[in-house]
Amino acid sequence: MSLLVIAVGLFCIGLYGVLTRRDLVAILASIEVMLGSATLLLVGLAVAGRTVQGSEGMVEGVGLMVIVLAAAEAAVGLALVISVSRRFKTTRIDEIVKVRG
């Protein structure tokens, strides 16, 4: 198993979860899998192709930014899920069809 197959495979597993899951929390978990696999490929590629001198710290820096983004995304996403479940009494996306402007 190569790095590419693992990371892209995990991204596609997450994508499949986003497309097929019917529950908002499960969709958020699948998005976390997609984000994690993208970070994995990013850091793995940076480690594998280390050619630019003095850029070693940047690799970890960029990975850290992705972690920060994912944390903010998870917090806002879960707050929205709880808000939706309060209003509609469900988190199934099939049942949340009422859209108000």
């Binding site: 590419l4 594998a48 690799v59 820096g61 850290l64």
Partner: peptide, 17 residues
């Protein structure tokens, strides 16, 4: 993409900072 990643980073927190 290379198949294997056979060497690691040699950075510490100083480079990151």
């Amino acid at each position: 993409v290379p198949d294997t990643v056979d060497h690691g980073l040699v950075t510490g927190t100083t480079e990151l900072a």
